[in-house]
Design a protein around this nucleic acid. Sequence first.
DNA 1: CTACAACCCGTAGGCACTACAGGAGCAAGA
DNA 2: TCTTGCTCCTGTAGTGCCTACGGGTTGTAG
Lengths: 135, 135
Amino acid sequence: MQIGELARVSGVHLETIRYYEREGVLPRPARLANGRRVYSSADTRRLGFIRHARELGFDLTQVRALLALQEEPEASCTEASRMAQTQLDSVESRIARLMVLREELRRMIAECRDGAVAECRVIEALTEPAPVLPA
Amino acid sequence: MQIGELARVSGVHLETIRYYEREGVLPRPARLANGRRVYSSADTRRLGFIRHARELGFDLTQVRALLALQEEPEASCTEASRMAQTQLDSVESRIARLMVLREELRRMIAECRDGAVAECRVIEALTEPAPVLPA
DNA sequence: CTACAACCCGTAGGCACTACAGGAGCAAGA
DNA sequence: TCTTGCTCCTGTAGTGCCTACGGGTTGTAG
């Protein structure tokens, strides 16, 4: 499989695949005589792993760590679990935060009904001092 | 008020304030004889507006547009409301997406109990093909 | 034979910051 | 008076994670 097809089946942009290779999260693949990259099903799985981890909000450094863990199956799962817990905490707080924002946006829209900007709550709501948030 | 104090009271990083000025979302402030920036309460409010809008997920281009709307209070509210609606849609979908991720992370953690990586659900879950998500 | 797609590499651009280098101004203490 | 240390100045480079582009080669279909 060449890079174009891998991009299609994985949904990962072709240039992003090359970027991952440069960054060392994808191994350098075999090459055809003409220099083109050829990917195995192992590469496809690994790219799927990376994509999925990225979708879950792991950054590339974390992805590298997870891949390293995957490479030594005799190692303990504790570290992977800990990373997932960290990720879960961050997802929880993002959800809570977004739900506050959603309420505010709803209120802004509800209170703005064809008025002029002078009475427009959308602008006004944004002009209010932001609530103090815990760091 | 000088830039350091503005940074403290607004919670916006000092270098970010200068960045906003370069980008034209904050007007160039008055200067003292020694060249230091001095900010008025109008600047403080404007920065609060920007910070709040950024927190709500508006990008700097949208912030500029909102500021322009704010500057002409006789204009219709329709545009501001439409922008808020767009933002609301994106917030809704981000929440939905994160809730799926949260469930998955919870499941991963629950199923990983001191096992070796070979049986680790965290790794395994990431290796599974990603579920098809609506764009 | 020619058009065109798919690939190659290297580099630059984009967003929203963030950091750093190197220098000047200013207030307060020894 | 000198020095320490803080705040500020400018300009530039780096970050994360891609994405785009330019200019070249290879492969394929009509």
